[in-house]
Amino acid sequence: MSEEYIVDVENMTIRFNLASEKVDNLKEYFIKLIKHELMFQEFLALKDVNLKVKAGEAWGLIGINGSGKSTLLKAICGILKPYKGTIRTVGTIAPLIELGAGFDMNMTARENVFLNGTVLGHSRKFMQEHYDEIIGFAELENFQDVPIKNFSSGMQARLGFAIATMVKPDILVVDEILSVGDYQFQQKCYGRMNEMLQGGTTLLYVSHDINSVKDLCDHAIWLDHGVVKKSGLVEEVAAEYMNENR
């Protein structure tokens, strides 16, 4: 039954410890242990979320800041473990990560391509085969041996996008990354994402730009304070979301 879903999130709850002061040294830990104050001040970032995605679908995640969109993506990527419920995913996941998270600023673009590629789980050989393609897409031919710290944020974003989308993943996870970079490059990225969608990649897309969600996605899930408010076809969800937030 569940085999037909490429992402299957069932009754998932994610809990954080919001304890007013974070205990990260031993003295406090023992004091609180003795006073029985180590109690959790729990915060449920997601409550009983269900999301079933079939292969080839494009889902937009919408909602106001702090509604749990990124938390949901992190759980799907396997970074956060659910407190309750289950997550099943099938196939490879390529996350489009925030600027520079996978980069070492002291190293050159060339070295970072290999570092970041292997962080994503590719082999070195695979990266060698695709190296020219990545640099070509990122339009950084003249800056291959320049340390990344001298790059503009747009250049870094281009490189990151090029590395993450070079391989055709089964699931592409995009978290509001395209806001950087110039218009021309944004169009290029949308083009690439559309291309991948046509090729059967599943997309999970977070953006505050409701129009780009409507353009790219066929389904949407609307989160509000950790609860699914509505999920289904993108037009219906987006219309209702726009209505509410007018």
Binding site: K74, C77, G78, I79, I93, P95, I97, E98, G100, A101, G102, V119, L120, G121
Partner: peptide, 9 residues
Amino acid sequence: SALLKKIYV
């Protein structure tokens, strides 16, 4: 930590 928060490694 920046990396671990973004990607599963």
